[in-house]
Amino acid sequence: MTLIQSARMNGHNPYACMKDVLTRLPTQRAGDATNLLTHRWSHA
């Protein structure tokens, strides 16, 4: 399954999800990275 498909299956706009995740990833703490997975993601 691709990240795009996963975002769609979880009811997210794939573009918004990926843009947000890729923007937040460099500053995200390693222990909090699971919050960026598509099934747990919420636009902050």
Rank of each mutant, 00 (worst) to 15 (best):
W41A: 06
D32F: 08
D20K: 06
M18G: 04
L36A: 05
Y15T: 13
L22N: 15
K19G: 00
N10S: 03
L37T: 09
Q28L: 13
L3D: 11
M18K: 06
N35Q: 14
S42V: 06
A33G: 11
C17W: 09
M18W: 04
L37D: 10
W41N: 06
H43Y: 04
I4P: 01
D20P: 00
A16N: 04
T27F: 11
L25K: 13
T2C: 05
R29V: 06
A44W: 00
T2E: 06
Q28D: 05
A30S: 11
T23V: 07
H39V: 07
C17D: 06
M1Q: 06
R24N: 13
R8W: 03
W41H: 08
P14C: 04
A44F: 03
G11V: 01
M18Y: 10
A7S: 02
L37N: 12
G11C: 01
Q5F: 02
A30T: 10
L36W: 10
P26K: 03
A33Y: 09
G11I: 02
A33S: 13
L25T: 14
H39M: 07
Q5W: 02
Q28H: 05
R40A: 14
H39W: 11
W41G: 05
R8K: 11
P14A: 04
T38L: 03
H43N: 07
C17A: 12
C17G: 02
N13Q: 00
A33W: 05
T23W: 02
D32V: 07
M1D: 07
L22S: 14
G31E: 15
M1V: 08
T34Q: 10
A44R: 03
M9K: 09
Q28A: 12
A33K: 13
R24A: 15
A7T: 01
P14T: 04
A7V: 01
N35G: 13
H12G: 02
T23N: 06
G11L: 03
V21R: 15
